[in-house]
Design a protein around this nucleic acid. Structure first.
Lengths: 245, 245
DNA sequence: ATTGCTCCTTGATCCAGATCAACAACAGGG
DNA sequence: CCCTGTTGTTGATCTGGATCAAGGAGCAAT
């Protein structure tokens, strides 16, 4: 289960400056280095089951994981999309509140919960950074509540695409390619679970946006955006270029 | 604007052990005592406008405030209900992301942002408690996402009532009155904004739950719950008595 | 008591998105 | 190459909740 084939020095870690360790000094990093271990998960694998004891916390190093919640009758809602540098688990809570699933192959940098909690109470920078990240996630969750409660299917799809576009233009720093383009990291069904729709509606609305020239598709997963402003308008977001995920 | 007619000693404060100051020792409390001030808001008054500079943060001492978000065309979604001891504002952010409105008359214990941030970086207990509270809010927001994305109108109403019931049975510690009863602190329209429904649907579903004997009404706002398990069943929540707000 | 509020209820109709159903495109794997 | 499973598209129909519309109940001000 524990995959020791991967091991990265913190100093070389691709998420060094965005993850929970972002603020750590060299000394703190050494302590983390000592207690950390890597685990890999295949696409589709469940990382943590809701209700299970959580014996570890950690950061997504690569790949994408999702947080989901399910009603007994099977209705499912995705409540978070975890990208590289996002933190999984909750110090101070014994039991997981949500399912965490690997959407793509995932590598995580893990810490057993106990040592991590001790480290948190002695080194301020981890706790500070975690607070900051949690506040960001809370803001994102609240933006998402607006989407789930009040947006139309078309606006939901446009919002999702623009969020993904914004996020990975931030990651790759390619500023203004004439035509922005992104890969959707989710199946139609996963998008539906994220947006509170059915997969058929997702498919139809994507087709509609395509027909209306808002987006172009190459294959099922690759989306080009000829006019980002147009897409943002379709997303219905408050004009003030708000800050989501 | 600043209302100095109210002033409570921290030691006597009703939210002393639940608010952001819960973990503070006497020394820390003294520092807070020096920089705090009280403000009162009338029902309906806006406490903070989205997009405004936030010059203060603080705790709700009494009354109920709501966090809301609005699309240009007026569609509105409530994204949080702030009860006594809940924290308002976000250290490390200059501008408010949501509207904060007093739903009932509200008294807040405020701190100017700068001094509070300084205090946070020097006293661990405030930051620790704030992290804990933020993580709780994030969990609650995610539960709410499931409600908004996947629950039916009837389940939404039943969920809201059971959350209010759970919350203030926790507050008043009256364990098992034969028939549990609660006051709804929101108008039908505010409930609609919270649940992602219209006020007509809220009204109809409340009537339906009443007709089916799940609840009883005295007046418009007072709800009695003869059988809590029945109500929880109607709410559709995962059987494991999950922990919301 | 009458007027004018705000808040709530109920009825009639409509429609966006769910549901049910068929099929297409593609990737392995024998 | 065909078979089988997964993922995605599109059409036909249904329905839960929105929308449009009317009126009631409580209450403060005149």
């Amino acid at each position: 289960m524990h995959d020791h084939s991967v091991h990265i020095q913190c100093q070389e870690c691709p998420i060094r400056h965005r993850a929970v360790c972002a603020r750590c000094d060299t000394g703190e990093l050494n302590r983390l280095e000592q207690i950390k271990y890597y685990r890999s998960f295949q696409a589709g694998q469940t990382i943590i089951w809701s209700g299970d004891r959580m014996e570890f916390v950690g950061s997504v190093v690569s790949g994408i994981a999702s947080l989901t919640q399910t009603l007994e009758d099977g209705r499912r809602q995705m409540v978070g999309l975890l990208l590289p540098s996002d933190f999984v688990g909750r110090p101070g809570r014994a039991v997981a509140a949500f399912d965490v699933t690997a959407t793509t192959d995932v590598v995580m940098c893990c810490f057993r919960k106990k040592p991590f909690e001790e480290l948190m109470s002695t080194t301020p920078h981890v706790a500070q950074r975690l607070l900051e990240m949690t506040l960001d996630e809370l803001d994102a969750a609240r933006e998402w509540m607006l989407l789930l409660g009040r947006k139309t299917a078309r606006e939901k799809i446009a919002s999702l695409i623009s969020i993904i576009a914004r996020r990975d233009s931030a990651l790759h720093l390619r500023k203004k390619t004439v035509t922005l383009s992104v890969d959707l990291p989710l199946t139609r069904e996963e998008m539906a679970d994220y947006l509170g729709l059915t997969l058929e509606t997702v498919s139809r609305q994507i087709s509609a946006l395509k027909k209306d020239g808002v987006i172009t598709l190459e294959g099922n997963r690759h989306v080009s955006i000829p006019d980002l402003d147009r897409l943002l308008e379709e997303a219905g977001d408050d004009s003030d270029g708000g800050m989501l995920v």
